[in-house]
Design a protein around this nucleic acid. Structure first.
Lengths: 303, 303
DNA sequence: GTATATAGTGCGTTATATGCACTAATAGGT
DNA sequence: ACCTATTAGTGCATATAACGCACTATATAC
């Protein structure tokens, strides 16, 4: 029996995850030719075809699916063994930690923490994937994600960080030159700045705090719609109109008066009132030290 | 984190098993220098010392012990994955199967079966370690052992093949020219051939079949003591005197009259009446196909 | 005290893997 | 239905690393 290279197993797993030789090669900082040959060698050693190749798409064979499941466990157990050994002598966890969050949350909440985090865990290399698209944690090899949704779906382990509430805010300058807004219904007379997301541009929902049964659907007009929450915040600060923004995004501006909460007694939302910030990570048998400490650090500093 | 070579893990396991760099190198068909460098690289990658080296002996450190336990599982799971995949398409099991048995049992019982076994499993490569010393199945990487003892000890999985009974026999030629032996006590007047083992040379135990309470200890005289059961059999066949031999070793000679059972109504032994032939194999999480089929084959043809 | 076995190192050679250029083939766009 | 762009696979020259050998240092056994 020819010996099987561990590298070959990692390459195989990468191809299976990305469903492409070329993308796997990219991920591994290698070349499609190498990946192709490595997989071919592995298939030769096992005497089994692992992938069905049609030049345009790659998919696992039945045997490949079975092998991937077993191999994933093996690779995980191996990483666990190495991780456990390296941290057994009380050493600071090392390696690469891949984090993802929305652009706004990353910029406002994560980035300010990184200096302290790096100082505490200097051996850890960080990679921050800030995107408003929902990425596949498995395919993108993400260790830890912040998700801002009512409930997290998928085969993920989830921890709640804090509740997020949305506020309807405007800058003092805007309020000074526009008709007063005493009640939510008065928003109809204003040109608002909104997120360019379905359901955010034509109506918001408002209800007196603690009275879910009195929810009002308030029609609004969107003068400017942007796809970036950070830019939305800037527009509100610049006095371009009322905006619906998450509390964690504007806490500082409300505190020092650069923004005014129009309805302090009300809760507001575009879609769902009960939203929270969650930490989510792949449901693996073993949680690496680096992820463990990152979770603890974020929990400690974010709530 | 530098990548860890699978080869390095196998080398590490071999050194741990053999407790020697040189013997591990021998086992791996490599050189002590290579083994030394491979282990050194592994230790460097893990940043942990795995072995305590004193030029004359090698022992695992605490971290090494822990790592070995984890790595063994990983390597086993990997072998299992490969084995399962290769045999999933109904292929005949392949690889190397290492068997051990006593010299006499191997020669008389195993060797005659090998032709048929090879024919049935042509992809299997066999290695037969015939020795009367009790080998360490783990250290010697034995897949399957035949043990002839009352009870098998150690962390082994055991299956009973058949009971072994000992008979006191002599050749017709010997009996024709010597005083008759009607009762066991009469053996004292004869020069016996015996095994050169403690307790075999000065007395044998005899009892009427099914009457354990009437066990007699019969003093005997050993004229020739040999360390090989096969040679003992030859001496008995050659008419050199009465001998105590296992039934499976002389069944053919008793059947065709080349040997005569002196006390067909009695059971005899040198040490323990209740001896059996056992199949024993290391207690692993996964039983490889090749071992599975070997066990089945031996069971089918040996009882 | 001496001899032998064992772990570790330096160096030159060899084998292996890698990267690049190119081919073959398919799926999607026009 | 054709053309184009992308992707898997192959040949070949090169670079990298692993390997084996000779040798050293050290500790145990006799």
């Amino acid at each position: 029996m020819e010996e099987i290279d561990l590298q070959a197993l990692r390459v195989f797993a990468a191809v299976a995850r990305r469903r492409s030789f070329a993308r796997a090669a990219e991920e591994l900082d290698s070349h499609p030719s190498s990946v192709s040959r490595t997989v071919a060698r592995l298939e030769g050693a096992l005497d089994v075809r692992l992938f069905q190749r049609t030049t345009r798409s790659v998919s696992l064979t039945e045997a490949g699916t079975d092998y991937l499941a077993r191999i994933s466990n093996v690779l995980e157990a191996l990483d666990e063994a190495n991780d456990a050994l390296r941290s057994s002598d009380g050493a600071s966890p090392g390696g690469l930690l891949r984090l993802t969050a929305s652009v706004a949350f990353g910029e406002r909440m994560i980035v300010p923490l990184l200096a302290g985090f790096r100082e505490r865990y200097p051996m850890l290399q960080l990679e921050l994937l800030l995107t408003d698209a929902t990425v596949d944690l498995i395919e993108e090899q993400i260790d830890l994600a912040v998700r801002l949704v009512p409930q997290v779906t998928g085969n993920l382990v989830v921890t709640r960080l804090f509740s997020t509430r949305y506020r309807i805010v405007a800058s003092p300058a805007y309020l000074a030159r526009q008709p007063a807004i005493h009640r939510p219904e008065a928003l109809a007379a204003h040109a608002c700045v909104t997120m360019s997301l379905p359901g955010h541009r034509s109506e918001w929902r408002v209800r007196p705090a603690g009275e879910p049964q009195h929810t009002m659907v308030v029609p609004i007009r969107s003068a400017i719609a942007v796809s970036s929450a950070l830019s939305l915040r800037s527009l509100a600060l610049g006095g371009l109109g009322p905006a619906l923004l998450a509390d964690w995004l504007i806490a500082d501006a409300l505190a020092d008066g650069r923004l005014v909460d129009l309805f302090p007694q009300h809760e507001a939302t575009a879609t769902d009132f009960e939203t929270a910030a969650w930490l989510a990570y792949p449901n693996r048998a073993y949680l690496p030290q680096k992820v463990r400490v990152a979770i603890d650090y974020l929990k400690e500093h974010l709530r």
